[in-house]
Nucleic acid binder design. Structure first.
Lengths: 191, 191
DNA sequence: TTTCTTTTTGGCATCAGGTATTAAAGGTTA
DNA sequence: TAACCTTTAATACCTGATGCCAAAAAGAAA
């Protein structure tokens, strides 16, 4: 009985499933010449989900990816803007922003609204996000209207760094809060 | 019972599955208020395959397209994924991601890549970003290929919260770094 | 060699999400 | 009334797994 050592079999197993993720455990036993129990222990150790889970993940990825890409311009409609002071934007969660199975908005869309607003509120030719400390307080759901309020807290008119605080609400409920540090260049100009 | 219900139900059934192909027959009974046998007869008549076949078809379609198409326009093409351990995604900065005047990527796109990856790497039915602490180390520019690496640092297999660290590079240079706290649901649960 | 440990195998119960078949109840319709 | 359509029900079976327990086999240590 010339079995391969465990390590090598694990490598082979990963390789085989990488090449063809549609293989059942039973098909794997044929290729690796070990019992089905061994295959299952191996998958457990390697944290490889069962066939059906793999298919489901693939299906979800393809389904969601079609619906999650459009992130073109500024996210949300800016309804009020006082440069270097504060701003408000509105953003409605629609199909393409949510996880298909739960109807919960992907975090980066909510972030994108806040980030866009934080950048927009800074009155400078070049404003870039340097860092942010953010909190998703409760999930935003399909159909909900998010309104974000941004307040410039420091670095109002000078160059260097500005601090912007953003709060996002759905109705009375806060769904997101973030502290942004925005880099600003020297030139003060409007477009 | 009126004469029409069947026709109408068939239309509704098609519509529901069109919107969300992940529905089981049992979930359909709740929405259509008929027995599971009726749902199955309906699927038979409409030649709609069972859930598992639908998932398999979707998976096959996406698998084929992943092999043929580069998938640039998605928020990162996941090229490696070890659930609950680590993951890698690639994202190329193109026109629609940058400030037109400067050619610098809007922060939320870089964030979106990292966030998508941090969520994808968590092996759970429902994984949502709870909070994040992020740093934009240097701007990413038009045409640059961002290479994000995620590592699950804590909360690997249990429910509750997981910590995921993400580093994004362009070549050797780090452009972004983020610490994400991902909320995860109670492992395998039925929908 | 014997003992201990790791690895592998086997068996059995159970699950989800179905298929396939047969039967029966209810209303419709000629 | 019989013939029919629609709906519900009951049952057996399928696949690709999981979980658990036990036992055999192989390797390493004393």
């Amino acid at each position: 009985m010339e079995r391969l050592p465990k390590r090598q079999r694990h490598q082979q197993l990963s390789r085989l499933l990488d090449e063809n993720p549609f293989l059942t455990d039973r098909e794997l036993t044929r290729q690796l010449k070990v019992s089905i129990q061994t295959i299952r222990l191996d998958r457990l150790e390697l944290a490889i989900p069962e066939l059906r889970e793999r298919l489901k993940l693939m299906a979800e990825r393809s389904y969601d990816s079609v619906r999650s890409l459009p992130l073109h311009e500024v996210i949300g409609d800016i309804v009020d803007l006082q440069l270097d002071k504060s701003g408000i934007s509105l953003f409605e969660i629609s199909e393409e922003h949510v996880f298909s199975r739960t109807g919960i908005a992907r975090g980066h869309h909510v972030f994108a609204q806040a980030n866009s607003l934080a950048v927009a509120v800074i009155n400078d030719e070049i404003a870039l996000t340097a860092s942010a400390d953010i909190r998703f307080i409760r999930p935003a759901r399909l159909g909900e209207k998010c309104f974000a309020k941004a307040y410039v807290r420091a670095g109002g008119e000078q160059k260097g760094k500005a601090k912007v605080e953003v709060f996002t609400y759905v109705g009375e409920e806060m769904v997101f809060q973030g502290n942004f540090v925005i880099y600003r260049s020297a030139g003060e100009s409007k477009t």
